[in-house]
Amino acid sequence: MTSLFAQEIRLSKRHEDIVSQRLMLLQQMENKLGDQNKEKTPQMQRAETALQRNLSLLKDIEAAEKSLQTQNHPVPPPEVASLETLYWASVEEYIPKWEQFLLGRAPYPIGVENPNEAEATIQKEVRQ
């Protein structure tokens, strides 16, 4: 019986040691978590600042890109715009003639067969 009583006392002390170690480890974990949270706050602020800076830089780059595009592609002179309009009008005029030919449903369009005649037609439209 005394051996059981001695064993009970030993187990009770062992239990107290384990519980005290557990409490100590829990306290260390809480301290470490608090330290990590303290470290995260400035890190989050730095990340937010970096994000704002990057967005600002991106806007500046886009503005510079637009500026360069307008400098590289100025508005064409009125003569060029007029020629472009005439060109697209001519294309739209000839589309029905060529469409059936290109789909294989009709013979080669008449009036375009002779390249000199086609060139004369284009020259005439440009002068108008």
Rank of each mutant, 00 (worst) to 15 (best):
E62I: 14
R53M: 06
T49R: 02
S20D: 05
Q123N: 12
E93K: 15
N31F: 00
K66L: 11
Y94L: 10
Q43K: 12
Q27A: 11
Q52D: 07
K97S: 15
I110C: 00
L86S: 05
L11F: 07
P42N: 14
K97P: 01
K59I: 05
E39W: 01
S20P: 00
E84I: 00
L58M: 08
E62F: 10
Q52V: 05
L11D: 11
R53F: 02
V75S: 05
I110R: 01
V80A: 14
P78S: 14
A50V: 10
Y87N: 06
S56Q: 07
A120Y: 12
K59F: 07
T2A: 01
N116W: 05
L11R: 11
F5P: 00
L26E: 15
L103Y: 02
R105D: 03
S3C: 04
Q36R: 11
Q128F: 03
A50E: 13
Q28F: 08
N116H: 13
Q36N: 08
V75W: 02
H73Y: 12
N31K: 06
D60F: 05
L26F: 11
L25Q: 14
P77N: 12
K97E: 06
V126S: 06
T121E: 12
E8Q: 11
K40T: 08
N116D: 12
K40D: 05
E119S: 15
K38I: 12
P109I: 09
E125F: 04
M29K: 14
E117T: 10
E117C: 10
E119C: 11
E30W: 02
S56K: 13
S82R: 13
R105S: 06
